[in-house]
Design a protein around this nucleic acid. Sequence first.
DNA 1: TACCCGTGGCT
DNA 2: TAGCCAAGGGT
Length: 354
Amino acid sequence: MKDAALVSRLRADLLAWYDGHGRDLPWRKGARDPYRVWLSEVMLQQTTTAHAAPYYARFLELWPTVADLAAADDGAVMAQWAGLGYYARARRLLECARAVVRDHGGRFPDREDALLKLPGFGPYTAAAVAAIAFDHPANVVDGNIERVMTRLYAIATPLPAGRSEVRQASAQWVMAQRAGDWPQALMDLANQVCRPKSPLCLLCPLNAACVAFRAGDPDRYPAKLAKAPKPRRHGVVFVVTDGVSVIVERREGKGLLGGMLGLPHSDWQAEGGEVAVKHMFDLTYQTFGAYEHVFTHFALTQEVWLARVSVDDFSDVLRRHNAYQALPLAEVKALPTVFAKALKSLLSLDLAAG
DNA sequence: TACCCGTGGCT
DNA sequence: TAGCCAAGGGT
C-alpha cells in the first residue's frame, strides 16, 4: 500500500493530466446519460474505441433511448451489431433494455449492486456505469487499470489470480471527488502512456510512485498465464443465390454466433477430421478458394461452394426448407464477418450473370 | 478455475 | 506470419 497523502497528490496530478490530454471520444460528448454510458461500455468490452465508435453512433441514431431499444426488433438489433463480435453482448443488451423498462420504470438504477443484477452487467460494467453515469466512487477495474496497478505496485502474481491484489490497489485511489472522471483518466493514461508495450514512463504523472518504473522493467507487468494454443479447423460454406439474395438461417442458441444470421455450412472439423459435405439443398455447386477466419479459440479455414440458381429454383429451396430465409446481397452487413468474408470472396463474380 | 465467445489492427 | 492486444461476462 502507498502513503495516503502521496496517493491524494498524484491523483490530483493525473486528473490535471486528464483535463489536458484526455481523449475526445463520442460517448464523452454532452451530458452523462446512463443509457449512453451503458451502451458505450458494452460496445467497448474487448473492443477498440475505433471499432466501436461507428456502431455507437448508429445505435443512438436508431434507438435514442433505452425505451426505444427495448421496443426494437431482435433481428434488427442483431443485424446492427454484426461485425462487432461477441454477439452475446447484443442479446444481453436487448434483455437488459427490456429489464430496465419492465423492472425499473425505464431508468437505470444508480447503485452498483442493483446494476450488477442486470443482464450483461459484470463487475466492470456495473462499477463503470455507477462511476461515469452517476458519479459514484466505485472501484472500476478493467484491463487498462489492471495494467496501471500491476506496474504501480509491482504486482507479480499472474492474472487472473492477481486480480484481488489489483482490486485492493485500485481501491486505494477511489475517492468521492471527480469519481466519474477518475477511471476514465486511468484508462486514458493506460492507453496513451502506460501502454502494454514500451510505456512512456517519463511522461507519466504517476511515475514517482511506480515501483515497476523505479525497477526499470514496466514491461514485466501485468504477468499473465500462458495461453492455450489455438487449434485449427476447416469446413465448407454454401452460397446459394439467385443473383439478388442469398440463403441464410437464423442461428439458434447461445453459443458461437448465436442469434445471428448465417450462411449454411458444414461442420467445422478439427485438423485431420473428415468434413462431411453433403450437397446442401441437393444443389450442384462450383467450388472456389478457401479463406481464413480467426475466432477467439480456433482458426477456421473455409472453402466456398457456390450455387447460382434461377429465381424459381431459389424460391423452391425456400419453400422446401422452412428454417432458411433470403437475405438481399445488398444487406451483407447483417452477417457476422466469418460469413461476410465468404460473399466478399465472390465479389469479383457477377452473381446475377450466368 | 478454465473455458467459451469475434474482430481488426499492429508488430 | 503468428501472436498480441482492445473499456469483459457467463457458465
